[in-house]
């Protein structure tokens, strides 16, 4: 088992307005506020109803959102869990024609996409842009513990203590990457530790 060029991992794009939508929901986390601001300023962004929700990320805090709060169109939510709850409630009242845009860390985007899917949003109704941390949520295949904020190719599993190798294989249902024991074949023979998802 090793990491490789695996096709299941999410591919994020650049946030640009979807002119075919009739109602737009934009969510951002921390450094994701920059793509959100850029899109709001896009002259092509339709004048349709819109909701903009942004939460600080733990690393940069509310200070990172100063530019966005200054422009007055975004609602600043205290933290990501509150934002996700707000998004869930908001989508529950939306009609067909809604488009969802999200910018933030890999984990944030995974959580947003999972909520969107639960409301029946399909791939052509949402757009994502990665901004900030590339840290991954890693699902331990052996004990099923989910390890948050993994920045290296190896992680000591918080559930079973095994050293996991983080594979590129990604599950949208679990919103997590796959982790398998790195030295199962030869105890102690792990690859070199590398900070690959800063």
């Amino acid at each position: 088992m090793s990491t490789s060029t695996i096709k299941s991992r999410p591919v994020h794009g650049t946030l640009v307005p979807d002119p075919t939508g009739r109602h737009h929901i934009v969510v951002g986390e921390g450094p994701g506020s920059a793509p959100v601001l850029r899109m709001l300023a896009d002259p092509g962004f339709p004048e349709h109803p819109r909701h903009v929700l942004v939460a600080p990320d733990p690393a940069s805090g509310p200070a990172g959102l100063a530019a966005l709060s200054a422009c007055g169109v975004a609602e600043i939510v205290p933290d990501v869990p509150s934002l996700l709850r707000r998004l869930d409630a908001l989508l529950g009242g939306c009609r067909m024609g809604t488009r969802l845009y999200a910018a933030g860390s890999e984990s944030f985007l995974g959580a947003v996409v999972k909520i969107a899917a639960e409301h029946g949003l399909l791939d052509d109704e949402r757009r994502t842009e990665h901004a900030g941390s590339a840290a991954r949520r890693v699902h331990c295949t052996h004990c099923r513990h989910v390890n948050e904020h993994v920045t290296a190719n190896l992680v000591a599993c918080g559930g079973c203590g095994r050293t996991l190798l983080v594979r590129d294989h990604y599950s949208r249902r679990l919103a997590a990457f796959m982790g398998v024991q790195a030295d199962a074949e030869q105890p102690g023979a792990t690859p070199a530790l590398q900070e690959v998802f800063p």
């Binding site: 088992m1 490789s4 060029t5 695996i6 096709k7 299941s8 991992r9 699902h139 295949t141 099923r144 594979r167 590129d168 294989h169 990604y170 599950s171 949208r172 249902r173 679990l174 796959m178």
Partner: peptide, 24 residues
Amino acid sequence: ADWSLEFDLGMKFHEWHGPVPLAH
């Protein structure tokens, strides 16, 4: 042969075949 239903459940065709080399 070394794939996980718990992990792959709900995936699309190309996603669950993601780890296969060369063929994509």
